[in-house]
């Protein structure tokens, strides 16, 4: 008896936290079907925001910029970060720990400080703030996530297999692709995905480094907060959320199936 009550309470607590985390998402989804433009009034069910969304050039532009920056910054960060991890892994202990602690700075430091420091640099170098500066900033804060994901895989790596490949006559590059790369690939992939997510969700660093000509979804939403969010934005975020949900369910499902 005592155990069932305890069990029930525990389930209830989990449900409560999940409600806390997911209630705002449910609200945004409901708002995307709201006929009324007002955030606080229900004006009946409609699908019109989903149609108007695709005709709204500003939002579509912001979406395009967001996705292209997320993809490019994640890709470049993954390449630089993976190469760096392999190099750092070969270094002696002192330079290694020094470099790794500097690498952690953008991850541990406050976003606003990172953002300001980059903005000061771009202005000092006379870079015009725009797409390029946002991309550089995103690569900068993404690299630590790649290094963080790849380093543990490199540490697990058995160096002998690589040397065996060399002894058997493989060229270093060939041996790397055949022996080392498959081993560290899961780390590389999760570094890429983590970077992509971080870039997609970033607001603060983009806000300071974007100048006036470029907008991502985050900065667009921020500029609309005062004058009222366009309902198309709710429709877009609902679509994105559902897309990710479906994608992740499929990945999880196929993984579980593969195990059986």
């Amino acid at each position: 008896m005592k155990n069932t009550i305890k069990n029930y309470l525990q389930k209830f607590y989990i449900a409560l936290i999940l409600l806390f985390l997911y209630a705002p998402i449910a609200i945004l989804m409901v708002l995307s079907f709201n006929e009324s433009k007002s955030r606080s009034k229900w004006g009946g069910f409609t699908l019109k925001w989903y149609i108007e969304l695709f005709q709204n050039r500003e939002i579509m532009n912001a979406l395009y910029t967001t996705l292209i920056i997320a993809f490019l910054s994640a890709l470049i960060a993954t390449i630089i970060g993976t190469a760096a991890s392999i190099g750092i892994n070969r270094m002696k202990i002192v330079p290694k720990t020094t470099i790794l602690s500097i690498t952690n700075i953008p991850m541990l430091n406050a976003d606003i400080v990172t953002a300001i420091s980059l903005m000061l640099l771009f202005v000092a170098m006379r870079f015009t703030l725009g797409f390029r500066t946002v991309l550089i900033s995103h690569i900068t804060f993404n690299i630590p996530y790649v290094v963080l994901s790849v380093m543990p895989k490199l540490k697990q790596l058995n160096i002998n297999t690589y040397e065996a490949a060399l002894d058997l006559g493989a060229k270093p590059v060939y041996a790397f692709y055949k022996v080392v790369f498959p081993e560290i690939f899961p780390g590389v992939l999760s570094g890429f995905l983590l970077s992509f997510t971080m870039s997609l969700d970033d607001f603060v660093i983009t806000h300071f480094t974007k100048g006036i000509s470029v907008d991502t979804l985050s900065t667009k939403i921020y500029s609309e907060v005062r004058k009222g969010i366009k309902p198309e934005m709710y429709a877009l975020s609902t679509l994105m959320f559902v897309a990710v949900l479906i994608l992740l369910t499929l990945v999880n499902y196929s993984k579980n199936k593969g195990k059986k």
Partner: peptide, 29 residues
Amino acid sequence: MKTRKWLAYPYLVWMVGFIVVPLILIVYY
């Protein structure tokens, strides 16, 4: 095998340019 360190050099340039120097700029300003 021993000299794989150069793979980290592009990142080291990036790290100094976009992490260390910007922080110094904040201190300077």
